[in-house]
Each structure stands twice: as structure tokens, then as C-alpha cells.
């Protein structure tokens, strides 16, 4: 076990998978000479050379297409698109090409393709560099979508994505970059489709992912002081979703709060809520509560942004509203 930052865990995942499989290559915006905006690919170019670690032009459509074509031929592409917001520049390539090829071609084509991208705010990056757009991708059959809340999962989920035979969108939260934690050394994966129980509890299930998950853990500690024993679940694999794991928790607690940083309207929390209502209605003692960002673009000013992302206070308020 090593202690490392979230950024270094991301870098280590790519390094380990490149060591393990010569068909893995890394390409994207500023991945080679600069080592990416936050250092997530630092040192890879020096270690593996320019044939396997490639800076691309700022041509997002071409970057994703490079991955589609190369992975169709048997390579494993790890593409970096820096900010999730930039995926708007290559939505056709993600939505109509990567997501659909395997299906449209009747399984002739396997696309082991990973797209890494930053999500999230709290660093004053404003509306075009701060979004959490996971719900855009969960709506597209053919893609897998994961998002990590800590260094261990950042490494394990990314490694798993690189080994997966399908296009995977890996969403990394930029506010977590300096976070440190224990991470297994060497090659290490976290399986998709499995929730992680962060805290056991019996009164309410709090479901979350990425940065908001950590706020939920802190909120649960506060709730304990008020006599509410919350169970906190890191959903982390949005597609495939561990709905059975979630339902097992809901059956135990009877109450659900789903918290995420994405805009609440049309967010993936709504889908999880609908699934719970559909498959676990009889377990529920109270309405399902969602906590998300308001229906506005992400504002720049710290004075505004601090009211934008869900925080511990809002999560606690949502939980308490279920006890009446």
C-alpha cells in the first residue's frame, strides 16, 4: 500500500496498464510534454516515449476518432480530454461512433477505448470548465461511465476501464486532485458495477459519487450526533449500475437521499430514484430526496459558487426532511 494523491493515482493507473500491455497508448490534449493540466500523465512520455504517449492537436473529434479507429484495430486507447465540458466538441464521436460501433456492426468490432476527463467545480473555473455531465453519457447505450471519489478508486476504476473491451467514460473530479489516500501498489483494478459501502447505517441510505460523496460521509458523521444513523454508498460505477446493491441498502433503511454535483434536473440521480421507486417502492418509508446543483450554469465568483455545489448542510437538511 502506498499513500498517494488522486492525481498520482490516475498517473499510476496508466503507467501500470502501459507496463502490463504494450497495446495501451495514451493520447490527448497536453498529455506528453506537459503531463496534462494537473499532472495526470506526468512522466509517461519520458518513460514510454513518443510512440505510446502522444500530444494531439486541439482537435477533439479527431482525438476520439483516433481512439475509435485504433481500438477497432486491437489497440487500447487511453484518451485525455482534459475538461468534461470539451466533450461537447466531439459529441458525435462519443455518441454516434464510439458508443454504437460494436452494436451496429453486430459485435464484429470491439472498442477498448477509455476517455478520461475532469468534472466539477469549486476552483473558480466558471461555466465551461466546471460541469458534471455524467448524465449525458449514461443516456447512451454502449458507453460505460464511472467516477471516482478517492485515490484508490481513481486508480482502480481507470485501470479497469483500460482493460474493458468497451468505450468507458472516466470522470475525475478536479477538486479531488490534491486528496491523498492509501492506494494498492502495482497493477490494481476496481470492478465495475459494484457500489462501495463507505459507512454502514440503518436509518437512511445516502447515495453519491465523486466529490459530493466525501461531503456525504462528513454529513453522515454530523447526522450521527443528531441520532440519525446514515448509510453512505459510493455508487462510483454509474453504468453498469449496481442496482441490487442499492436496493439491498434501501430495503434496510427505508429512506433515500441521492446527492450529486450535476444539475439536479435531468441528473443521473433522477434515474436512480426512478429505479428505486420502480423496484423498491415497498421498502420506502418516505419520498426519495435528491440533492443537486440548481438549474443554472456554474457561476464564476466564489461568492456565488459556494452556494452552487451541494454541501454538507444541504445534504443534512435533505436527510432530516425525511424524518417526520
Amino acid at each position: 500500500m502506498a499513500t498517494m494523491t488522486y492525481v498520482n493515482a490516475i498517473r499510476d493507473a496508466q503507467r501500470q496498464e502501459m507496463l502490463r500491455d504494450p497495446k495501451v497508448f495514451v493520447a490527448g490534449e497536453d498529455v506528453a510534454l506537459m503531463g496534462s493540466s494537473f499532472g495526470q500523465t506526468g512522466g509517461l512520455y519520458e518513460e514510454f516515449g513518443g510512440e505510446r504517449v502522444l500530444d494531439t492537436p486541439i482537435s477533439e473529434g479527431q482525438i476520439v476518432s483516433l481512439g475509435v479507429g485504433a481500438s477497432a484495430m486491437g489497440l487500447r486507447a487511453v484518451l485525455s480530454l482534459d475538461f468534461c465540458d470539451f466533450l461537447g466538441c466531439c459529441m458525435d464521436e462519443v455518441m454516434n461512433q464510439a458508443a454504437k460501433m460494436t452494436y451496429m456492426l453486430g459485435g464484429q468490432m470491439c472498442l477498448p477505448l477509455t476517455i478520461r476527463s475532469n468534472i466539477g467545480g469549486e476552483i473558480g473555473a466558471a461555466a465551461q470548465h466546471s460541469q458534471c455531465l455524467e448524465a449525458l453519457f449514461t443516456h447512451l447505450p454502449g458507453l460505460k461511465v464511472v467516477s471516482s471519489s478517492n485515490p484508490r478508486d481513481a486508480k482502480g476504476l481507470l485501470s479497469q476501464a483500460i482493460r474493458d473491451n468497451n468505450p468507458v467514460i472516466v470522470l475525475e473530479h478536479k477538486a479531488l486532485n490534491p486528496m491523498t489516500g492509501d492506494v494498492p501498489e502495482g497493477a490494481f483494478t476496481v470492478p465495475f458495477g459494484k457500489i462501495e459501502l463507505k459507512k454502514e447505517g440503518k436509518d437512511v441510505s445516502i447515495l453519491s459519487w465523486a466529490n459530493t460523496l466525501n461531503k456525504c460521509v462528513r454529513a453522515a458523521a454530523d447526522l450521527e450526533k443528531d441520532g440519525i444513523d446514515a448509510e453512505v454508498i459510493d455508487v462510483r460505477s454509474l453504468i453498469p449500475l449496481d442496482i441490487d446493491g442499492i436496493l439491498a441498502s434501501v430495503e434496510k433503511t427505508g429512506r433515500v437521499v441521492i446527492a450529486h454535483e450535476a444539475v439536479e434536473t435531468g441528473g443521473y440521480g433522477g434515474e436512480i430514484a426512478a429505479m428505486i421507486a420502480d423496484k423498491g417502492f415497498d421498502f420506502l418509508d418516505a419520498p426519495i430526496k435528491r440533492v443537486g446543483a440548481p438549474y443554472t450554469p456554474v457561476p464564476f465568483s466564489g461568492a456565488l459558487e459556494k452556494h452552487y455545489q451541494p454541501n454538507e448542510e444541504r445534504i443534512i437538511r435533505a436527510v432530516k426532511s425525511l424524518f417526520y
Binding site: 479527431q62 481512439g67 479507429g69 485504433a70 481500438s71 477497432a72 484495430m73 468490432m109
Partner: peptide
Amino acid sequence: ADIGMGIIGANGIVGASIPITNGVAFALRY
């Protein structure tokens, strides 16, 4: 498509296969 015959695929989106071809070319060289 017929991957075994080097036919990496027709495409319903105009212009989409042009950059994909570069991905194929990159893999051939790799």
C-alpha cells in the same frame, strides 16, 4: 463492415469516418 477484409465500416454520419481512418492508420503503424 468486414473487419477481416479490412473494411472498418461504412458510416451514417457525413465526414465521421475520415478521422477514424487516421486511428486505423495509427494502429497499422503501431
